[in-house]
Design a protein around this nucleic acid. Sequence first.
RNA 1: GCCGGAUUAGCUCAGUGGUAGAGCAACGCACUUGUAAUGCGUAGGUCGUCGGUUCAACCCCGACAUCCGGCUCCA
Length: 657
Amino acid sequence: MTTASPPAVVHVTAEQGGTTAGEVLRAAGVKDSAVARIGGELRDLAHVVAEGDAVEAVPYASEDGRNVLRHSAAHVLAQAVQDLFPGTRLGIGPPVKDGFYYDFLPERPFTPEDMAAVEKRMSDIVRQRQRFSRRVVEEDAAREELADEPFKLELIGLKGGSSDEDGSSVEVGGAELTIYDNLTGDELVWKDLCRGPHLPTTRDIPAFKLMRTAAAYWRGDQKNPMLQRIYGTAWESKDALKAHLTMLEEAEKRDHRRLGSELDLFSFPDEIGSGLAVFHPKGGVIRMAMEEYSRRRHVEEGYDFVATPHITKGQLFETSGHLQWYAEGMYPPMQLDAEGDKPGQDYYLKPMNCPMHNLVFRSRGRSYRELPLRLFEFGTVYRYEKSGVVHGLTRARGFTQDDAHIYCTREQMKDELASLLSFVLGLLRDYGLTDFYLELSTKDPVKYVGDDETWEEATRTLEEVAQESGLELVPDPGGAAFYGPKISVQARDAIGRTWQMSTIQLDFNLPERFELEYQAADGSRQRPVMIHRALFGSIERFFAVLLEHYAGAFPAWLAPVQVVGIPVHSDYDGYLLDIGKRLQAEGIRVEVDTSDDRMQKKIRSAQKSKVPFTLIAGEEDISKGAVSFRYRDGTQENGVPVDEAVAKVVQAVRDRT
RNA sequence: GCCGGAUUAGCUCAGUGGUAGAGCAACGCACUUGUAAUGCGUAGGUCGUCGGUUCAACCCCGACAUCCGGCUCCA
C-alpha cells in the first residue's frame, strides 16, 4: 500500500520563487501530495518556496502522507470536542500506527453517545473546508494565547526537550514555536499549538472514523494525571479505510480468546485465578502435538533434557539477581518452617528456569569436552503480571516455556548462536510461520549488571550472527534483560501482524554469579558463556499465535480432530466406524459422527469445527469400497478407495501439511 | 497498578424496583440415502460475590472478583 511510482521532485524556477510548494507541484501536474518535502523537511503546501528549492511530493498513501492526514484529523477531533464540550482542556494529538489520537482533560469522562456526536461534528468541520494556517509565535505571546490550556503551557516550557517517545514533539518539536489556526474564510474558528505540517484544508482528509475512548497518563508517565484519550483511524481513501476496518474484523474473528472457547480448546476459570489457563481435551491434544514435535527436534539438535521444580527457596533468586530486579513481578513468597523467633524460609514460585539449570550444570565438575552443553525443559513458570496487563494466553501469569540454556566456551559462542538461529527459524517454519525479521535488544542504561566491555562483546557477537542470517535487523535500544543483550525473532502472521517469538539471550553474568566453571584442555578452570533461549517463548503464547495465524484451521498434524467420518444414512455407520478404526490404528485422531443429525447437519458441524478431512460414505461408495473425501475448503474427491483415503490422511499428517 | 466500560442458561444476547426470556448447544422421541441447520418436546439461571438502601433489588448504592479497551509494565 505504498506509492506505486517514485514521488515527483520539482525544482523551483526563477519565476516560481515566492509562490507556494502547492502551486509548484500543481504546475508540474502533481495531484497526489498531502504536504511537500523541501530540504528534507516536511512543509505545508502553503509554504513559500525560493528559486532552486527541490520540492518533493508526499503522496497521501505514503507513511509521511498518512501521518500528516492523521495528524490533521486529530486537530479536527480536538476542535469537535472543544465545540461540544467547551471546558475540555487539550493534551496532545499525534498520529500513530493506523490512526491518531488526541488526549483531553474533560469535565467528565466521554460516553459512547459523546463519541457519535463528536464524530458527526468532525464531519461538519471537514465539510466546512477550514484552512490550516501556520503562524510563528514568540514564546511569551504563545503563553498568553494559550493561557487556558495548562498542558500546552507545559509543552511550551519543554520546547527543545520534547521527544517522539511521549508524542510531545508533534506540538513543539520544530525549530520555531508555531500555532496552526483553523480558518473559515478569514474567520478564526479554532487554533492549536502545533509543529505541523498539515493538509491544506479539513476537506482534504479523505476518510476517518473514531474507534474508541481510552485513558492515558499525561506524557506517558504513571505519576502524571490521567487523561481521556480518543482514538481514531484515518486513511488516504474510503476504500483504504474500509480495508482497514475489514482487517480489524478479521482480526477479531481470529482472536484466540474467542476461538479458544468456540473450538473448546481452553478456558480461564475464575476459581483458579486471573491469567491461569486450563486446556480442554482438544486444546490439550494440540499442545501435545506441538510439544512432541519440538521435543523430537531438540533431540535431533543435541539437547539434553532436564526437569526442575516449580518452587525454590528465595536464596536461589538472590544469587541470580531476580529478587533484586524483579521481585514485584514474582508471586509473593510462602514462608515455611518458622519457629518462634526463628525466621523460616521464603519459598518462591519460579519466574524463570535458568537458575535451576545452572544448578544442574554445577552439580558436578564439568569438562570442556561436554561443551556446548544444552539443557532443555518445558519449564512452567509463574509471573505476577499486573492486573491490567493479563491478556488471554499471550500474557498469562502461569505458562510453560520451551526453555533451554546452552553452556559453551567463548570460542564456541558464535557458531553456537549461528546454528541456534537457523534451528529457531527452521522450527518456526515447520509450524507454518515463514515471514520473519530480527530485533537486537541492547543494554538498558539503568537496569543492568556486568561490565561494559563484556556487554559490548556480547552485543557485537549477536549483531554479527544476526547480520549473517540475512534477515532484516531492527535495533531495540535499552530492551535487553539485565544480564545480557538478546536477539528476538519477530514473525508476521497470516494477516500481517507481527509477534515476538523466539528470544536468544547472551549472558556473561549469571555464570559469574553462580560461579560456573569447566576444566579446560590445559587443566585450567574456565567460566562458560551462557545462552538463554526459548523458541516458542511460551507454549501458551505460541499456541495463541498459531491459533490466530490459522484462524483455528490448524494443519492436519496439529488439528485436534483430523478426520470426521459422516455416513449418508445411519445404515452406513458401521462402514465408517471400520474405516475409523483403521485410521486410529495409524495414529490418526478420528471421529465418526453417528449422532441422529442428518448428513447435511453433520457436514456443517464438521466444517464449523474446522476439521481438515471429512470422509463421507453412502451406498454408492460402499459398493465400490470407497469414500468421498472432503477437504476443509469444501472441495472434494469422490469414489476414493478406502486404502488410498487412509494413505492420504496419514501422509498429510506425516508431512505436516 | 491507573482510567473507562462490562458481568443475566454451556455460548451469543434480550429484559423489568414486584423473585426472568430467545437462538444455538445439551438431553429425549420421531425422522434420516449424497455435501453448511429435519421436526416436536424436555431440562437448564439463588441474574459474578458480599454488604447496604427499600415493604420489595437481577435492576439503585458501595466494596470485592473476573473480563474487555487503553495507559504503564513485560526478566
